[in-house]
Design a protein around this nucleic acid. Sequence first.
DNA 1: AGTTGATCATGA
DNA 2: TCATGATCAACT
Length: 224
Amino acid sequence: MLFSSSPPRDREELLERAQQIAGLTLGELASMVNVKVPSNFKREKGWTGQLLELYLGANAGSKSQQDFASLGIELKTIPIDLQGKPLETTYVCYAHLTQIAGIEWHNCNVKNKLSQVLWVPIDGRRDVAPKDRMIATPFLWTANAQQEQQLRQDWEELMEYIALGKIEKITARHGQYLQLRPKAADGKALTDAIGPHGSVIQTRPRGFYLRKEFTHAILSAVFN
DNA sequence: AGTTGATCATGA
DNA sequence: TCATGATCAACT
């Protein structure tokens, strides 16, 4: 890469840096950091998030923690339509399907990842070329008591299924705000999970995702 | 194989 | 039309 920002010192600097690019297109931001915009995202689905990481100075490569670990802040780009509604669900984190004893809501990955998020809404309409998609106003978010309760309830339900060996019974229809879906390179990827009667089975790796209804509520509270 | 960044594409 | 289930790329 020909460009990389130094990590922001504090949340104010991060937020300022993010809000400075509100109104720019992805093409304009990409030229600032000397990268080329793909004509579509069929083969580079995470391109937008990586562009923002580069511009904002996220410690790339760090895993299982926030993008700005020292600030306790996670970066999430979110594709929206003209009404500001999310066009996609939001990936939260990988779901561990074994050795889950002792994991409670208060110390789980989902809660940790979402403790504080820098949301960067971006025009995600597929009939607009990526280079022309405009960045909206980024903002910092922390779940309120109601939102945390909503996530916690779904998480606990999903984790109970996993713990009881019912992973194969879970579909993306479970969970009102937080869902569990496959998360892998392809359908051949397998990982260990708890099966019926406590046996070990092989299953498709899963990840936690926020439903659009949940992220829409977050966006609405800020922009309405 | 695990985990990050996500969007794609097909069935309902 | 839309969400679910599948998939793509980079890096560890």
